[in-house]
Design a protein around this nucleic acid. Structure first.
Lengths: 216, 216
DNA sequence: AGATGTGAATGAGTTCACAGCT
DNA sequence: AGCTGTGAACTCATTCACATCT
């Protein structure tokens, strides 16, 4: 059955499609909004209606992970939010480290560190000695060569790459070698990661180009 | 209202899936890299091998829009890049306007305006009088109430929303009313657009949450 | 020969429709 | 009754396999 090619190791048992994961994250956002409105219970239909989603899909997505709803009634908003929060690994803090404290890096440090519940920017590094030593929020920018120590001391799990495309692969490798657990890449280049370390690309150029297509 | 300026023999846009569009944009990036390496011709196999793609998919994607390749030989790099460039609407400038000149807005203004060939940030607006009047790159921040005039004068086509979630829908509506042609939204909220105006969401929280899932 | 372009087959993802629980 | 959870049907996307062209 499972033919073993010269690929990486066997995958995790909990297979979840990126599309589903994306939606779960969005559902949680919707539930948070309902919580603020003091809504206690909601049916998949209502949820779908409010946020332009598909009721069936909501149910299918959720049912993958357990029976969170009450038949004939709907979902308990608080309870479901908690379940999703836990499922997505947001029930504990995630420390982030930013590589490249230029314009984008600095903006991300403040933007992400500010209002993102489970996430916290705890460190920043840069190659440029002129940027090292600057104080940004709750941390001081350190030299990129200190990465292993910075990761160890700060407990950072997620590395955010905000460096130019040319420097991205090198810094990605360094992050992984320094023991970072996941990478979020803002450089406009497709990086080669390694199997155990999830890597997500946020390519602003591609977003713009997709819009441009509709403006021809 | 969509006025189509016919210039050149571009294939019909037909319905194109967002996934395909995303890949075309990526193919173009790969071709640009090959151009820098002075590569003149490449086969779908080589292209796939170099950038971790599927050769069949490359051919299928491209074949939707014409016969760009030469059987038995491969694709002419320059020619294909030009075709994709034109197909994606990158053969002319696209002016962008940023709404919300806080940290993120300012960073985007410099980041996007700097090194993004076909795109140019030509204007920025903010609600805060303290930010109005600041000079950023090649433009001066103007009050958000001037949107209609700013759009008209600057010729901006793409509106970039870099405002808090609460203000995003209102500003999106204003952008559309002011005649903007497409919207790129960085606020962590799903906006209600209108049919003729393409809208793309870049939700940094969702990217982080998708990574967090793998760190449970 | 060697690579494209493409119908056919397979697989992934979504919607339908209804059984089953409250 | 009302709504969830889920197999079945369906639609969309990818891969296979090969006819076709240089």
């Amino acid at each position: 059955m499972a033919d073993r090619e010269d690929r990486g190791p066997v995958e995790e048992p909990e297979e979840i499609s990126p599309l589903t994961l994306n939606r779960l994250s969005f559902y949680l956002r919707c539930l948070r909004q309902l919580q603020e409105e003091r809504v206690k219970r909601i049916s998949s239909q209502d949820l779908a209606g409010r946020f332009n989603l598909s009721a069936t899909q909501i149910r299918k997505d959720l049912a993958q992970f357990g029976e969170f709803g009450i038949r004939g009634v709907g979902y308990d908003v608080d309870e479901l939010a908690d379940h999703l929060n836990q499922l997505l690994g947001l029930d504990r803090r995630h420390a982030m480290l930013i590589v490249g404290m230029g314009n984008l890096g600095s903006a991300l440090a403040q933007y992400l560190g500010f209002n993102y519940g489970a996430f916290r920017v705890v460190a920043g590094v840069d190659r440029d000695p002129a940027k090292v030593g600057r104080s940004l929020g709750s941390f001081v920018v350190r030299p990129v060569d200190d990465l292993p120590a910075v990761v160890r001391e700060s407990g950072a799990e997620i590395g955010v790459l905000a460096v130019p495309a040319e420097a991205a692969q090198e810094n990605c490798d360094r992050l992984i070698k320094a023991g970072i657990k996941a990478v979020l890449n803002f450089a406009p280049i497709r990086l080669k990661g390694i199997p155990g370390v999830p890597l997500k690309n946020v390519d602003l150029r591609i977003y713009l180009e997709e819009l441009a297509f509709f403006l021809r």
